[in-house]
Design a protein around this nucleic acid. Structure first.
Lengths: 231, 231
DNA sequence: TTCAGGTGAGTGAGCACTCACTTACTCATT
DNA sequence: AATGAGTAAGTGAGTGCTCACTCACCTGAA
């Protein structure tokens, strides 16, 4: 049904002069065109004609390469994303036990000047539209970092440096701050009164230090109604 | 173009026995059907035939009440949501300066057992699909609480109870934690290892107290490269 | 009789997808 | 070097179907 992607036989026949493209190149350009259109208008809001036009070929050729529109969608999700550089930097920061740098790297990677909202939009669309690959997409795009952060938090709790929080939930919370910020800014278009760097700094500091001003030494075993107004 | 919504003239002609419905009732049932379908499949993923069927009427009647599919979409957004109860409770907590209760109310309202993801889905869909009303919808559904929280944070900073954070950004961060949690849980369907109440409690405590274990007294003026690995 | 509530049977436009066909490139044989 | 068979790249013109939306026409309560 979907033996579409990759066919590394003999020689890959790419004669790139300016005549025809190889199958690989053509598929890549179709995937690129489809990705930005699906991100902009959703799966059912995008027509195969639009995609073909954006890639500069006929609609018929699109169906030569991908048997259905849905297969094209899947090919996008299967294709995208390697963040090996970020990962290396993160692992270095983790090895150094440099909390602030680790969190700043994570936040700054998503909240920065040229950040491309395409992947975020695709992820949200595929989640909302209930595409079967959305969870795979989520796993590939987010889960990696999510697990990495949860693992780090866990280690830092063992170090005695972090409070005894739930690592999973805490990692979720931090990504929540970042993702939500991007939804407001990149998707809803809500303007920003600070630079990206200032925003990242504020979020990281807030997350690490909390909102309440330096509680005294108690606070450790505050597992029941600790912050009531009357002591 | 869209003088569709509400027409409180004379008597509302409702003869509800079980024969024909009044225009008001019919519109309400169409809006209800459309809301859940748009939330489930998006605007362009939903057909007017589906909506009419879900409301138990003919497609033609739908167009008697709403001139276009888009007008129906707008009517949904214009119709929904008053949270007066929550608002009152929040204002009480704010007056009491009860931080924990205020944050718990905010989080617990969205993260709870029977929470209906319809509105969240609609908001996300309308934002992604670039519907002109998405920002209005956002304002109506979220901005109220967002402003309320930012105002409260501002006041608590003046009280000396909170650190001198950016109130806007901090309010954003808290909603981010909640919204992201709901996206993962209600939309992506990622399972939970804790009860809703435990989750809320963890988030609130994390947000108020931060992640790092009780820093000593310093930490206030740490505005430049404080956590670098080598001194 | 009136008239709002309600419908079956359309309409043209646009959809995903197909088909018969042409064009350009490769390469073994001469 | 020239030839031409084989094949991958590419297309214009459809296909049947579904879409949002319309229209002529019922129906039943006041």
């Amino acid at each position: 049904m979907n033996k579409v992607i990759a066919r590394p036989r003999k020689a890959p026949t790419r004669h790139n002069g300016n005549g025809r493209a190889s199958a690989q190149d053509r598929q890549a350009s179709l995937i690129g065109a489809a990705a930005s259109l699906f991100a902009a208008k959703g799966f059912s809001g995008t027509t195969t004609k639009d995609i073909a036009k954006a890639a500069g070929v006929s609609e018929a050729l699109l169906f030569k390469h991908f048997p259905t529109k849905r297969a094209l969608y899947s090919a996008i999700l299967a294709e995208k994303a390697q963040y090996s550089e970020l990962r290396a930097a993160l692992e270095q920061a983790a090895a150094d036990r440099d909390d602030e740098r680790l969190f700043t790297l994570l936040a700054g990677f998503r909240i920065r000047k040229g950040a491309d909202p395409t992947m975020l939009r695709l992820l949200l669309f595929s989640a909302l539209e209930g595409h079967e690959l959305s969870s795979m997409f989520f796993r590939q795009q987010y889960r990696v970092f999510y697990d990495l952060l949860a693992g780090y938090i866990n280690r830092r709790i063992a170090d005695g440096a972090f409070r005894a929080v739930d690592p999973q939930l805490t990692a979720r919370a931090f990504f929540g701050i970042i993702v939500h910020h991007r939804i407001l800014h990149d998707i809803l278009g809500i303007p920003l009164h600070l630079t990206h760097e200032e925003v990242v700094r504020e979020y990281v500091l807030l997350f690490l230090s909390g909102l309440v001003r330096n509680r005294p030494a108690r606070e450790k075993n505050a597992s029941e109604r600790s912050a009531s107004p009357s002591p």
